[in-house]
Write a protein that binds this DNA or RNA. Sequence first.
DNA 1: AAATAAAATGTTATAATATTGCATTTGCAC
DNA 2: GTGCAAATGCAATATTATAACATTTTATTT
Lengths: 167, 167
Amino acid sequence: MQNLSSMHNITEHHNHQRCIDDAMTRAKALCHSRQVKFTRIREQVLACVWANHQPVGAYTILEELAKDSSRRPAPPTVYRALDFLLDNGLVHRIASLNAFIGCQDPSHQHQGHFLICRQCRNATELDTDIINTAINTAAKQHGFSVEVPCVEVVGCCAHCKENRDND
Amino acid sequence: MQNLSSMHNITEHHNHQRCIDDAMTRAKALCHSRQVKFTRIREQVLACVWANHQPVGAYTILEELAKDSSRRPAPPTVYRALDFLLDNGLVHRIASLNAFIGCQDPSHQHQGHFLICRQCRNATELDTDIINTAINTAAKQHGFSVEVPCVEVVGCCAHCKENRDND
DNA sequence: AAATAAAATGTTATAATATTGCATTTGCAC
DNA sequence: GTGCAAATGCAATATTATAACATTTTATTT
């Protein structure tokens, strides 16, 4: 299901093990400070999500869990873990892909904006206010109160534009 | 499946029959000018989508078609009609709801931005560049080329804020 | 008008994603 | 250890979407 480009990292040569370690450490600390349980399953699911920078589907996670342990968990196991991670801001859901991705900054509640590369399928979470401001401005003109902005932009990332093997 | 608020219109007292008539007229003219066929099924599906301003699911459309004619169409019938309507810009898909909504302006190709009211479930398509500009600006900073921006904002519309029966 | 080709629709089956409901286990407070 | 709440296991099923192939309709050519 994953193509070759799944081996590309979000920037060409970043140390992804560091991404994973940081994410897991942050998650552990955050759950501890919130007094919620970072159970084995939740940890495994988060690790799957952080395996790379591509949004991953619930059933793909299921496959991965089945590889690790001899027992094959059922869908609710994964969905419950994902719900927990979503609630605690540790992952985001990408609605347009029915997939999940690790959150870059779980410490403060937010709904990220994503740049999703059609080519390598990496998704980059944006940390800018420009888009939220624009959305709020546009919404205000309609008397609309924004609660959950969802921005998922499909296109072509810088790295894939360089390696012109696209389309 | 629809709640009571489904009777609210997108603005409090707009003549929705006019919305429908306009949309159907536009669709007919547009298909004629493009020399593509606005068949009975496509027309029925578009009419379902325009029945109100709430995004409607494919299987809800299926139910509606079953009511009209004695024969019950199968899912591919509806999905094929929806694909046609999407291709021709007559409807948009709301990814976060797995649902479809009529396009306000099918004459030029665009991916709309939507304000979706959590309360009455109406979705308003925005016609502003503010958001696209912001997305392009943010994307540019990452060397990312935008192809399909998807903006689906959940919140509370002006009308529902007035009638404080929310939450 | 008959033959042909292309497009649209019908039909069956199935894939992919997600949830419900209830049983069991685990971790923790007392 | 007892009792409770949270977490997980498990079976079934709901929801959304597509694949593959047959049939019908429409348009085009002859």
